[in-house]
């Protein structure tokens, strides 16, 4: 008995400790402050006050949430389309396509960002294609070193993170339900609208939220494709740690981000709770 309890304690306890300890430390240090080059361990709300008082932090915070929301929406919609098309295939083609669409997950992050820079840059693939097709007279600076560039890059990089959960939620729908719908007289479009979509939507939205969480905290992509225009909250946090060396303030910003993520995850939880399965 006692031995089992110990094992269980270790199994649950160690990961909890590994996750909670750094987080707790963050939370603590967000209530500290810097005096000169030293961290002062006296309690203060100054960091949070600074955050709420400074409209530019606020602005970046909300703008980043909005950015991540758009990236998530893009991931949800185009991820759903891709996942659905893969799901409709039968036989080996299906798993080949799935594999191809998730291979980017295994690729190095930096490589992906550089690839996106190559595509979005002034002389990049996207501009060349638009000029070649006659849609643009000359290469545009629209896709580089601004918020749009960050948005497009993140949307592309995080797409596979949406495809996988959406595919899985489609895959969970018993095929007999699709057959039953056709059997009862529903043409394919109605079967999709009345059966497939409602049953896969909750899982898909969770996939979208997953993308949102990932892009909320991302500072590398904005850094590398965003330039000075593409500032995000992730970069703000990073600069407090890496450049200003104001760890307590950085921690307070991180806590604010965590708060946003927590709210998103609770929303996801509520969504899945109301999903009905037999």
């Amino acid at each position: 008995m006692i031995r089992w309890s110990l094992v269980r304690l270790a199994v649950y306890g160690i990961p909890t400790l590994l996750i909670l300890c750094p987080m707790g430390l963050f939370l603590l240090s967000s209530f500290w402050s810097m005096s000169g080059n030293k961290m002062s361990h006296s309690w203060t709300l100054a960091n949070y006050r600074a955050f709420f008082a400074n409209a530019s932090y606020w602005g970046i915070y909300l703008q980043t949430i909005k950015l991540a929301g758009i990236v998530a929406l893009f991931g949800l919609v185009s991820g759903y389309i891709v996942a659905y098309l893969i799901w409709r295939q039968r036989g080996p083609l299906r798993y080949m396509l799935l594999l191809f669409s998730v291979i980017p997950l295994a690729m190095n992050y930096i490589v992906k960002i550089y690839a996106m820079r190559g595509i979005l840059g002034f002389n990049g693939v996207l501009n060349s294609a638009l000029v070649w097709s006659g849609l643009l007279a000359k290469p545009s600076t629209m896709f580089v070193f601004n918020q749009t560039a960050v948005l497009i890059a993140m949307a592309v990089i995080y797409l596979p993170f949406a495809i996988l959960p959406i595919f899985l939620s489609l895959e969970r729908i018993p095929h007999s339900l699709v057959e039953a719908s056709a059997d009862l007289g529903a043409p394919p479009g109605q079967t999709f609208r009345r059966v497939v979509l409602p049953l896969s939507l909750p899982g898909s939205v969770v996939g979208g939220l997953f993308v949102m969480v990932l892009s909320l905290g991302d500072f590398l992509t904005p850094q590398m494709v965003g330039g000075s225009q593409g500032f995000t909250f992730g970069r703000a946090i990073w600069s407090q740690f890496g450049m200003a060396f104001n760890w307590p303030f950085g921690a307070a910003l991180a806590v604010m981000l965590l708060l946003a993520i927590a709210i998103i995850l609770i929303a996801a939880r509520l969504l899945t709770r109301y999903r009905r399965t037999s």
Partner: peptide, 18 residues
């Protein structure tokens, strides 16, 4: 299938869970 005037009772019932 959707144009055939037959209806099926599936072995696993295939009721729409939602």
């Amino acid at each position: 299938t959707f144009q055939r005037p037959f209806n099926t009772v599936f072995q696993d019932y295939a009721l729409f869970p939602h």
